[in-house]
Each structure stands twice: as structure tokens, then as C-alpha cells.
Computed example of a mutant assay.
Amino acid sequence: MSIVRRISSGPHQVQGRVLDARNTRWNEHRATVRAELVDAAFRAIEHFGASVSMDEIAAEAGASKPKLYRYFSDKAGLYSAIAARVGSMIWHSAQSVLMVDADASVEQMMRSGINAYVALVNTHPRIFQFLMVHQMFQYSSFDDGGGAAEQLQRVMTVFADRFATSLKGVGASETLVPMALASILGSGLSSTKWWLEVGRPADVNTETFSSHLEETTWGIIYGAARASGVIVDRARSFDDPEFLVRAH
């Protein structure tokens, strides 16, 4: 009986492997086509701006609108894939900052992170404006690994967690850290929206804009630190015992 079972189950196992291989090839093909369509959407947005239509995206992709909907279900699905691509770009641009030498000052790390973000916005202004016009920084639940807002928050959370650890180390409350993080993100996105809407004027170049974001961020951090009864020395590293001390 066991021999019969082994023999009779053979074709089913082979069929299962064939189906698995077909599914793998289809998934790989689907991922490739989706990436190509998102590439085309980027080009269309760079050309037409935030008002780009699905027809214009389809034309740029050399495809029909039904093909777009076949791979993204609807317009919202394509928009979320665009947001996910920007989110990936934000995360990758921050990697060099997050992996920086532990001896680097918190000020240096924060400045490098902000500069990387501003450089990305300055390189793709119409893409970021597109996301803001369509409120893609206001909600999540993306199926493509997290949108722009989620990845931006992910980067900031790395810093927030280090601050929380330092607060805990001196016996101070960590409860204001999430509030400060939300304030920094909200302020930064509002400033970015304004900067893009006014056309990134010459008197507010990338250096000036980065400086504004940096000082605004530190203003929020200093305010939260005072409310928590601590003093922050941004010229020190996170690992320096004197980076954060209790106020007398």
C-alpha cells in the first residue's frame, strides 16, 4: 500500500513543482512590469506635473489604461506604488547617515539627514509635489512596502529611539518623544510644501532651506527637552554621557 501511495503521489508532486515555477515566473514578470509602469509614471509626472492624467501616464508607458488597471487595480493603486517608490528612495538616501560613525555629533547626523532629504526633494520636485497635492503624505496602508510618509517617519524614528534611550539613561520621561517626532515631521512637510509651491526661489536655495529645517527641528527638540527637565548638547554624540543631562 505504501508503494502505491508513493507511486500515485509522484505526478501530483511534479505538477505542484510546475505550478510553483509558473507562479514564480508570473510574480517576477508582474513585479518587473509594475516597476516599468512606475518608471513611466515618474517620467510623466516630471513632464506634466501634479495634474498628470492616467491617459498621459499610459501614453508615456506605451501601454493602454486597461493595462495600468490590470497591474494596479485602480488609480489609487498606482499612486500608492509611486509613493512606495519615493519611500524607498528616502530610506536609501538616509542609509549613509544612519550608518555614520558612532563618534559623530548628533548635530552632524541631523544635518546630514536633512541635507540628504532636501537634495532628494530638489532632484524630484514635481514628484514630491504630486504626492503632496494628492495627500499621499497623509495616509498609509500601502501594499508596496510603505509609502513616503512611512519611510520618512522610519528614518526619524531611528533618531527618536536614540533620544528616548538617552532620556531613560538619566531617568527622565520619554513620553514627549512621539509628540516631538510628530511635530518635526509636520513642520518639515509643511515647509517642503511651501518651498515647492513658491518654486524654490533663489533666495531660499537648498542650503537656506536645509538650514531652516535644521534649526526648526532643533527648536522642537529643545522645547521637548525643557519640558522633560533635561538639557541637550547637540555638539556631542549620542554615546557621549554629556549629550543629555538633567537640568538643575
Rank of each mutant, 00 (worst) to 15 (best):
V38Q: 01
M179E: 13
L37C: 13
A224D: 02
H92R: 14
G113Q: 06
H212Q: 13
M179W: 12
S51R: 10
A182T: 11
A76H: 14
L19Y: 07
M132N: 11
N23H: 13
S112Y: 03
S88N: 12
F159E: 03
W195M: 04
T32I: 06
V230L: 00
L244T: 00
A44F: 10
A149W: 07
V100E: 14
L189P: 01
A119N: 12
L131H: 06
R5Q: 13
A83N: 04
F238R: 08
A116I: 05
S210Q: 00
L78Y: 10
Y117F: 15
P178G: 09
A202N: 09
I90F: 11
Q13F: 10
I221T: 01
P178M: 00
A149D: 11
Y69S: 11
N27H: 09
V232A: 00
V204M: 10
G169F: 00
V4C: 12
M99T: 15
G219P: 07
M99G: 08
A58C: 09
E28K: 13
F48S: 14
G10V: 07
M110Q: 11
Q108E: 15
D233P: 03
Y69M: 10
G49D: 12
A247R: 06
G223S: 15
R6H: 12
A225T: 03
A224P: 02
A44G: 09
F137W: 15
H134G: 08
S64W: 05
V86A: 11
R126Q: 14
A225D: 01
A227Y: 02
M109D: 01
V106H: 04
T175M: 07
R236L: 15
S51D: 15
A182I: 04
V100K: 04
A149Y: 13
I90T: 04
V245K: 03
S93K: 09
Q95I: 13
F137M: 12
E214H: 14
V230W: 00
S237D: 11
S237W: 02
S2H: 06
G171Y: 01
L196N: 07
I57K: 05
G10M: 10
S210I: 03
H47N: 12
Q135G: 10
E207L: 02
T216E: 13
L213D: 06
P11S: 02
L213A: 08
S210F: 05
I3Q: 15
A172L: 00
H134C: 08
D233L: 01
I57W: 00
A148M: 08
S211Q: 11
A225I: 01
L176Q: 09
W195A: 00
T192L: 11
A40P: 05
R6V: 13
Q135L: 07
H212Y: 15
G169N: 10
F137E: 07
V245L: 06
F209Q: 07
K67A: 08
H134D: 01
R85T: 07
V170Q: 01
D20G: 02
V177A: 04
S112K: 03
A225C: 08
D239Q: 11
E36T: 03
S93G: 05
L19P: 05
S141F: 15
H47M: 14
A164Q: 03
W218F: 14
R154L: 12
V177T: 03
G77F: 07
I57C: 06
G171D: 02
V52M: 04
R34V: 01
G10I: 09
Q153M: 14
H134S: 11
H248V: 05
D39C: 08
